[in-house]
Amino acid sequence: MLSVKSLDAFYGRAQVLFGLDLAVAHGEAVALMGRNGAGKSTTLKCLIGLVPHAAGEMTLDGVDIARLDAFRIARLGLGYVPEERRIFTDLTVAENLEAGRRPPRQGSPDWTAERLFVLFPNLAEIRRRRAAHISGGEQQMLSIARTLMGNPTLLLLDEPSEGLAPKILEEIATTVSALKAEGLTILLAEQNLRFAGAIADRVAVIETGHIRWQGAMADFAADTEAQARYLLA
């Protein structure tokens, strides 16, 4: 479904990604794991078109997305949930959802605000509140819900676990797993193995802009040596 080949990207003069290869199949949940600064966020930002890439190919369902503007890539079905959440704090919760709304897409469920309020009951209670005045966990849920309003076929989640209390993380993990069960394809950038393990089937480990390890989540979860090498120190 998603195919990335030999992707190079720079921040200023510093190269961040070096010939990165990555593929995600339909219905799969892949965790892109690695330390801070390894290139996880940059990979996702390249995919959605927010960071320009220097070289490489990117296709979504066979469509070349390498040179498209962000909004066109999003319209093709790539949903992006940024690391900093980036909700529109000047808008209400309901308005944030409206800002993310796109027409229904063939072959994927049509999300509405009402359906999302069932999925995220917390948001229903605060739908009229300005998003500036909601908690960090609620912001994360809103950010995911807002992206779902665009009826994406592939969801890019950038470190949803960062800075959240364990209880809220658990809720989010449950929700994302439910989305996956409904057939949504997921690419998750994550450092938190426990959180990623609850969601992903497969792991791609990224280190200093290269993919170093790929395989089943179960294998990675069992391989404490690989974990130590790529995630800890």
Binding site: R35, N36, A233
Partner: peptide, 9 residues
């Protein structure tokens, strides 16, 4: 914050 794990120690 933002420091690679390897550099933290």
């Amino acid at each position: 914050a933002g420091v690679a794990r390897g550099e933290r120690a």
